[in-house]
Simulated assay, not measured.
Amino acid sequence: MTRYLPFCLLALAAGAATVPDARFDPQTGYRIAEYRGIIPEPPPGVRRINAAAVARLVDTGRATLVDVVPAEGAVREANGRWRLAREQRGIPGAAWFPEAGRGRVDPAIERWFLAGVARLHAAEPRRTLIVFCLADCWMSWNAAWRLKRAGYAQVRWFAEGADGWRDLGRPLVPMTPYPEPL
């Protein structure tokens, strides 16, 4: 009996390796739970960018900043306007799309996000799209991958996000959500 023990342990380990991780949507691969945590690598096809490189691109006008920090306690009304529970601070010049980084995003928010990024990109097509949230936030990972899947080639994932910007000694300013189209 003991001679079969290694094979049984191997079979158990193999079975455990195939258990799906409930924090990820099995169809899309987006993170859907526990959004704050260590992120081992950037989304497929997206390169990571550090705070110093983001600052250089911003300072030279070669970046379009896309902030996906959630709006805690906020309500998005039927007309697309947001009622915020408290002030949100972010990187100056960033377009803020609250809730767009969720793994299972509301379809109206996803349409607003993709249409808004399309408008931003059309206005400055040579700029690099830099997607961020806070440090260790899977929402920016999801949003960067969503944009890559939508066909954007120059997407960068700023993993340190607004926290990394602040740690560089750069200011954070009050933000308002990106406007809905009229």
Rank of each mutant, 00 (worst) to 15 (best):
A153Q: 12
R23Y: 02
A144M: 03
R156M: 06
G151Y: 03
E77R: 15
T60F: 09
W141D: 00
E41Y: 12
R127W: 05
A162D: 06
H121M: 06
D163F: 07
A144Y: 03
L134N: 15
P42C: 08
P179Q: 00
E180D: 11
A122V: 12
R76K: 10
A71M: 10
P40D: 14
F7D: 14
A53R: 14
A74R: 06
L10R: 04
I49N: 07
V131P: 01
A143R: 00
E72I: 11
L5I: 12
C133T: 07
P44K: 08
Y35A: 05
W112L: 07
A123E: 12
F113E: 01
V69M: 15
A95Q: 03
F97M: 03
V131A: 02
S140L: 01
Y30L: 08
E99C: 05
A53H: 08
L5Y: 13
R146N: 04
T60R: 11
L5D: 11
A153L: 10
A123L: 09
I130Y: 05
A108T: 14
D21S: 02
R119Q: 12
A33F: 01
T60D: 13
Q154N: 15
A11M: 13
E34D: 15
W145Y: 07
A118F: 05
P125K: 01
L5E: 12
L172Y: 03
W138M: 03
Y178S: 12
R47F: 15
P177W: 11
W138T: 04
A162W: 04
A123Y: 06
A74H: 08
L182P: 15
A78K: 11
G103Y: 01
R126D: 15
M1Q: 11
G161R: 08
A78T: 11
R81G: 10
A17Q: 10
A63L: 05
L134Y: 07
G90H: 01
F132M: 03
I38M: 14
A16P: 06
A16E: 08
A135M: 05
L65R: 09
G103H: 01
V69C: 15
E160Y: 07
T176K: 13
V19E: 10
C137G: 11
L168E: 02
D25R: 00
A108D: 13
Y178W: 14
A115W: 13
G80C: 12
R156L: 08
F132C: 01
A74F: 08
L114K: 06
P20F: 00
L114F: 05
G164K: 04
G151A: 02
W138P: 00
A123I: 05
Q154I: 06
M1K: 11
N50I: 13
E110K: 09
L12M: 08
R48M: 14
E99N: 10
F7E: 14
G45R: 07
R127N: 07
G37E: 11
R156C: 07
A153D: 14
Q88N: 10
